[in-house]
Amino acid sequence: MTLTELFPLLLVGIIIIAVAVLFTFIPVMLWISALAAGVRISIFTLVGMRLRRVVPRMVINPLIKAHKAGLGVTTNQLESHYLAGGNIDRVVNALIAAQRANIELSFERCAAIDLAGRDVLEAVQMSVNPKVIETPFIAGVAMDGIEVKAKARITVRANIERLVGGAGEDTIIARVGEGIVSTIGSSHDHNKVLENPDLISQTVLTKGLDAGTAFEILSIDIADIDIGKNIGAELQIDQAEADKNIAQAKAEERRAMAVAQEQEMRARVEEMQAKVVEAEAEVPLAMAEALRSGNIGVMDYMNLKNVMADTDMRDMISKLSKHENDEDDNDSK
């Protein structure tokens, strides 16, 4: 086959490859779908999206949806939101839902809410259909020392104006919990709280707990209420136990001091007895020295011995008399 015969075949192949590349790079079918839906968009705009690394279908499909809903959203707005990392489809769905619910919501605010990380479609739906947040059991202690546990159901509605920068559900639960604890704590008798649990919800609602949050509190209902521990009695028991331990410690301290004083007195007595024994041991030596030196005579020494013997005899007689008197007293008893 000659070159002249191959040329038409090569030309056809090149045309087919060029058309395939063209249809791959340029979303012609998406352009046709947009035109069919009444969205006027240039083919060069789609090529520009490819060059800007924007997926055309991620912009065109929400644009068609917005055009059918009658929203005045432009391609540049959607494309810029896509490049900022937002979810175009969710933003358009939120705008459509807000329009159907007669909620005033602009594209700029909707895009800001989406870029802030909040689910703007869920927020719009919550504005129409309020959400119920249930708290765990929150315990408070009344003035009579009885613990009261309460569980609340908080009905909230999303506040579109405060979605950017507003606090979330955790803040609502924390504030309601604080209000429940303070209301129970200010009650003199826990029975009043049990009889009128609506006092808790009324008191909490008057405090404006939704300030600075992304929600508007519609109602607070006490779902369940229960009695807990007798905290006052437990505190008194703990205080009594602490007082007892302190008294025992002080008594032990006094006993230890008494034992120490007794031991000190015994040591002093033993020391004095030792000194007496030591002094008595020196008496015979002193007497011998006195006899040798002539300070006393033998008769003086004998008279001293007689006096000592007489004194010992009298001591024995007095002890025997006392012993006999004690025996007579025992016999008489």
Rank of each mutant, 00 (worst) to 15 (best):
A249Y: 05
I231L: 04
I222T: 06
E262W: 12
E241C: 06
A249E: 05
A256D: 09
G228Y: 04
V269G: 01
A256T: 14
D198Q: 10
E280V: 08
A214N: 00
D226C: 05
L235P: 00
Q248L: 15
I220Y: 01
S201M: 03
L194Y: 04
A267G: 09
T203D: 05
N196L: 10
K250H: 14
A247Q: 15
E252S: 12
Q261W: 07
K192P: 03
Q236I: 15
K192W: 15
R255Y: 11
A214H: 02
E264H: 03
E241V: 09
G232S: 04
S186W: 03
A242T: 14
E262P: 00
E280C: 05
R266S: 00
A242V: 07
I225Q: 02
R266D: 04
A251E: 07
D189H: 14
N245P: 03
S186I: 03
G228P: 03
V259N: 06
K250R: 12
D224P: 04
D238R: 10
N191P: 01
E280L: 10
E234K: 06
Q261S: 13
G228D: 07
K229D: 15
L218C: 01
N245K: 15
E195M: 13
T203R: 01
N245G: 11
L205F: 01
S201H: 02
A240D: 08
L235V: 10
I220Q: 06
E234W: 02
G212R: 08
T213N: 02
E262Y: 05
G212T: 09
E270C: 01
S187Q: 08
R266F: 04
E253M: 08
K244G: 01
E241N: 13
P197E: 04
I246L: 14
A267V: 04
E241S: 11
V193R: 01
P197M: 00
Q239T: 08
D210F: 06
Q261H: 09
N230L: 03
L209S: 05
A267I: 03
S219A: 11
D198H: 12
E234I: 11
